[in-house]
Computed example of a mutant assay.
Amino acid sequence: MSGILDLLNSDLGKQIVSGVAGSTGNDSSKTSSVLTMALPLLMKGMERNAATPEGAAGLMNALNNKHDGSILNNLSGLFDGGVDETVKKDGAGILGHILGAKQSGVEQVIGQKSGLDASSVSNILKIAAPLVMGYLGKEKQSKDLSNSGGLTSLLGGMLGGNDTKSEQNFLEQILDSDGDGSVVDDVAGMLLGGSKNSSGSGIGGMIGGLFGK
């Protein structure tokens, strides 16, 4: 099964990157960098949420009733003249649900690595989130999934297509920090080769490998 990052390397993904960059006024290369970091995080967040029966039911309901993939059918129309505010509002709701209190910290960390400010990252993610949900909904339909078990498998497979043990560890760390309410502190330590995992081949080195830095 293709991983979520394979989407960005496809013709559809290139159209998404170009459209999101144009709609947010950001450089395409930096937008691509943001999405390369953010898409696995969003997918991992959905996988974690779907690990409970309630979370899986909620995600399945959203994919059945709202995010069926149709948003991907007319991307030129979506991006032409600027993305509608209702799409951005929907994206903000998706991000809040997936990332919760960790959202601002995640945006700041991604901003550090991409060279954009957190506000620009936030604008990119608000547009990207409904597209990710649409992509997931389209994959769900193509595989005719009707239960939460199949959905969990789909999410795992989409992560697994581009996943390594190091990437998996990073995703777990950034989404499930030490509970102090600050993702920024925890991940900043990782980026600087910090306290909890400081060896050159540990988190610090792994971050470099994951983001090509």
Rank of each mutant, 00 (worst) to 15 (best):
V87H: 08
V83G: 10
G81M: 09
K89Y: 11
Q141K: 12
T86F: 09
S142T: 15
A92C: 11
E107H: 02
K88L: 05
K143D: 07
M133A: 11
G91H: 02
I124Q: 00
G82V: 13
T86S: 12
A101V: 11
E85C: 10
L78V: 10
D90H: 11
G134H: 05
K143G: 09
K138D: 06
L136F: 10
G91A: 02
E107P: 06
Y135G: 07
F79R: 13
S114G: 03
S148I: 07
E139Y: 13
L75K: 12
G105Y: 05
G134M: 03
Q112G: 10
D144K: 12
L75E: 06
I127F: 03
A118D: 04
G150F: 04
G100I: 03
A118Y: 03
S120F: 01
E85D: 10
A118M: 05
G150S: 05
G111M: 00
I110P: 01
K143M: 04
K88N: 08
G150C: 02
K113H: 00
A101Q: 15
H97Q: 05
S114W: 09
L72A: 06
L72K: 08
P130H: 03
V87D: 15
S76L: 15
V121G: 00
M133C: 15
L75N: 10
S148F: 10
Y135T: 07
S104K: 09
S142Y: 08
H97D: 08
I94R: 02
L125M: 11
H67Q: 11
S119M: 15
S76W: 15
N73E: 07
E107F: 00
D68V: 13
G150R: 06
G150P: 02
G134S: 12
Y135S: 09
G93M: 01
I98M: 01
L116N: 05
I71L: 13
I110T: 00
A129R: 00
E139I: 14
G134D: 09
S119W: 13
L95S: 02
A92S: 14
Q141V: 12
I94V: 11
I127E: 05
I127L: 03
N147H: 13
A118T: 05
H97R: 12
I127M: 07
S104E: 03
L75R: 02
L145Y: 01
V83N: 09
K89S: 14
G100A: 02
A129N: 02
V87F: 12
D84P: 14
I94F: 04
G149C: 12
K66R: 10
N123P: 06
S104R: 04
H97G: 06
G93E: 00
G105C: 08
N147R: 15
S70L: 08
G82I: 12
K143S: 14
I71Y: 11
S119H: 15
N123S: 13
V132W: 13
L99Q: 10
A129S: 01
S119T: 14
S70A: 10
Q103T: 09
S122A: 02
S119F: 15
V83I: 06
V106C: 06
V87A: 15
I98P: 02
G91F: 00
G69P: 15
K113F: 00
E139T: 10
G115M: 00
S114V: 07
